[in-house]
Amino acid sequence: MTDQGRAWMTDDYAALATTAAAVLAVEASPHVDRWREQHHMDREFWLRLGELGLLCCGVPAQWGGGGGTVVHDYVVLDALVRAGISPASMQVHNVVVPHYITSYGTDEQKRRWLPRMAAGDAIGALAMTEPDTGSDVQAIRTRARRDGDSYVISGAKTFITNGSVADVIIVAATTDPALRGRGIGLFVVETAQCQGFSVDRVLKKLGQHESDTAELSFDEVRVAAANRLGEEGAGFAMLMGQLPAERLLVAVTATAAIERAVELATRYANERHAFGKPLIAQQHVKFELAECATHARVARVFLDSCIAKLLAGELDETTVSMAKWWFAELEGQVVDRCLQLFGGYGYMDEFPIARLYAAARAQRIYGGSSEIMKEVIGRTLVDPARGATA
């Protein structure tokens, strides 16, 4: 993470970026190919990151975390992308799951789960998406039936990052389907020796192979009422409340990927010779890289603005929706143009640019598709006085 012109990039963030880069070069990069084959990172890697303080940096120190802000976690994610590692697993574990628990959990719940997550001893996942529901969260069918001091959960989830390796899963389920969003609750399922919980299969994805993505089943899974986050029926509001920080994850990792792609392509264009001279000597190549480098610079300025707003508590839904949509689309465009400069080598999985290309495609889908983001933005542009209808 370069720090040119960044008011938010304090010495603390800069030091963390340096540390994360050094740690990943030793603890992660040599193992990436194997992780991609097995579709998940080693448990020892999680424990090592926990030992070195690179997990749950934004969780308060009293609950075992780093005592920083969510931006500390963003810095670690940026470093992962630059080290050639898909950040998806860490996005969920470092940002998504712990911030639900810190925001909505009781002190007892925080004591139970957060220190283990920060240590890498418990991996987190969020089970929201279902086979028949994607962006329409209010239509989820997984049912949580109250039974005395417990809830009994039944249903199926899909596209769950960390699903096959998670120890702590936040499950979105409805206590009353007729209430739609007002009937959704969030329940923490601890998978160890959990009767009725199963991993149906680990899905084969286009990219991001270092992280597992799984289908999960809950067959009469019984969890204590004490495992519910917040009030019954408040789950949808909680899900919506966490979206700004979660959607900004895409902007953070997209910017890192864009800058990484430009760096890789520029280096290759200077080293590779064609027709008796370096590729960079070709005017078309220079122009392509000039445009991509400019896109990268503009993206960085927009991201810095969003991070500054987030830290000030001023990041609104419209702005973060613009960021999520724009960064995801730009990442795909820039990485594609950079890959083209590699010729046939760009299509080989062993080249980092090919992995960036495959990983980028999902950014336009998860966390709210590009179409949903434009719908959110568009609603703010409608003049109520004109009586526009959907």
Rank of each mutant, 00 (worst) to 15 (best):
V382Y: 10
I280L: 10
M373Y: 03
R297D: 05
E271F: 00
L16C: 10
Q208L: 12
L80H: 06
L239K: 04
M41P: 07
A299R: 03
G163A: 11
R361Y: 12
S154F: 02
S164M: 11
A390V: 11
T2D: 10
T318Y: 07
F218R: 12
A254F: 01
H99E: 15
T19Q: 14
R267H: 14
G378C: 09
G181D: 11
V376T: 11
L186W: 02
A385I: 13
V382M: 13
L54K: 06
R297E: 08
Q333R: 15
R6D: 06
D336F: 10
A299G: 02
A354C: 13
E350S: 15
D336S: 14
G207M: 10
V81E: 02
G181C: 05
M240P: 04
C338H: 05
S370W: 13
M41I: 15
K277C: 07
H40N: 12
G66A: 09
A119E: 09
R182I: 00
D212H: 05
T191D: 06
V376G: 03
F218H: 14
P98Y: 01
L310I: 08
R201D: 07
K309P: 06
G368R: 10
Q283L: 08
A139C: 10
G163S: 12
V301R: 15
A79N: 03
A156C: 07
T191N: 02
A245R: 14
A362V: 12
L80V: 13
F342P: 10
T174S: 15
D136V: 09
D336T: 14
Y74G: 01
D176A: 06
A88L: 10
M128T: 11
A328R: 12
R141M: 08
E190V: 02
R43I: 10
G120C: 03
V320W: 13
N270W: 06
D200R: 14
I184Q: 03
A265G: 04
G367M: 11
V76T: 04
E329N: 12
Y357L: 13
I280E: 01
I169C: 06
C306M: 15
E44I: 01
A360L: 10
L339C: 12
R141P: 02
S164N: 09
M238N: 03
V75T: 04
H40V: 08
R201M: 12
Q333Y: 13
T253W: 01
R146D: 07
A225R: 11
R48N: 09
C306D: 08
A269E: 11
A127V: 07
D73H: 00
H40D: 08
H72F: 00
D147P: 01
R180A: 09
L203H: 06
G181Y: 07
T319P: 02
V81D: 00
R297F: 05
H93P: 06
L279S: 11
F342A: 06
V152D: 01
D3P: 02
G241F: 08
T129M: 09
I140S: 04
A299W: 03
A173F: 01
D304C: 02
S135T: 14
A269S: 15
G196S: 04
L341A: 04
F236Q: 09
V334P: 08
D176K: 00
D316K: 04
V165S: 09
V202S: 03
D42F: 00
V320S: 01
M238D: 02
A281Q: 09
M1R: 04
A118G: 09
S135K: 12
